[in-house]
Design a protein around this nucleic acid. Structure first.
Lengths: 194, 194
DNA sequence: GCCACTTCTTAAGATACCTTAAGGAATAAA
DNA sequence: TTTATTCCTTAAGGTATCTTAAGAAGTGGC
């Protein structure tokens, strides 16, 4: 039997905290299930980001355009990951990021107000998000080392080694953007690898 | 009248949460005040990082050495900042970072076990640390843009503009390390500025 | 007041990565 | 099947930044 969307969320929460059935049911009512087709946007630059997304199926990217119009991909996210424009979501200022579906994608979305309501109703959700934020901080610190210590070739090799499935689901020019390389240069690097 | 160390901590907490006098007193008992002389280490690579530090006076840097022995400064922290090796602190694995005092420095230190005890005794501390982690995530994301979007000269100019006091308290070759530039190249860039 | 150490500068040659421009291959649309 | 789009590669010339090596200037210890 296939896991329901509700189960997927429950499992994700249970990795870090224990909730009673009642608490979980209450929390779950705050979410809205949404679907996006390939290339559809979950969030556009300039909008106020009011939703925190939990991906139940699919693949999205977060990105922005710099002054010269060049696209910079800051993150990918897949099933079982949480994603939003954190800065926009918590500050209520217009978002600097876009979030776009790269595949048919399904999410559960919770709004800012609802989330902060449940923070009060279910205190242990503070623990969940505290731990999640801690883990994000650690991931971002590791990413910093990753970009600063490794050159382009090493970054690519590392990605292929640690996330091979990812490398297959995402076109190369997007990986290049994520790795902060030009597609042309990444192509060069790949040639050397073989 | 000068603010006591206890007041400095209280003020820091009150920026984000409300505590009763009793709660704050309880929390405060968990901390140990420590002093470090210039160049002394709060944490060495390889040690298990068991303390979360709140700086009440002074200036520290976090750094590591890469395989080639080159030093990379990942952060500075001054009065009123919290600092630790987050990854080491939360995973209990040997720390990859060093933390060293650059000036005569005073801190309040709280141990892992004590902190997690007060998380249970005083639930709103989860809120405090959740918000602190959120802010760190945002700061790290901004830092990522900062390194990726700006070239060396722009990074230096930005630092001088936004944190001029900092630039004066820290020797240039350390700024270079933080900016991920060689001291020689930073010296070049400074010449062009004038 | 001298010595040692720390910090900053200069300059030449090397390298990683980018820009531009073009064409080829693969996939989707018609 | 043809056409359009999306994606990947090749190559030439340019720029930012590093490496190495050396010396100058400032600072604290004795």
């Amino acid at each position: 039997m296939q896991a329901s969307i509700k189960d997927i969320l429950r499992t994700n929460l249970e990795r870090k905290i224990q909730l009673t059935a009642g608490e979980f049911d209450l929390f779950y009512t705050k979410f809205t299930p949404l679907s996006y087709r390939k290339k559809e946007h979950l969030l556009h630059t300039g909008e106020i980001c009011d939703a925190y997304f939990f991906i139940t199926e699919g693949l999205v990217k977060s990105y922005y355009h710099d002054e010269k119009g060049k696209e910079h991909i800051t993150a990918f996210a897949i099933e079982n990951w949480w994603v939003t424009d954190l800065e926009g979501f918590f500050t209520k200022r217009p978002s600097k990021l876009n979030i776009q579906a790269l595949e048919e994608t399904r999410v559960l979305a919770i709004q800012y107000k609802e989330l902060h309501q449940v923070f009060e109703d279910i205190p242990s959700l503070n623990v969940f998000f505290r731990i999640q934020m801690q883990n994000m901080v650690m991931a971002l610190q590791r990413r910093h080392h990753f970009y600063m210590k490794l050159d382009g070739k090493e970054r690519y090799d590392f990605l292929v080694k640690t996330l091979p499935d990812f490398v297959q689901r995402v076109p190369q020019y997007m990986l290049a953007s994520y790795l902060e390389l030009t597609p042309e240069y990444l192509s060069e690097l790949r040639k050397k690898t073989k």
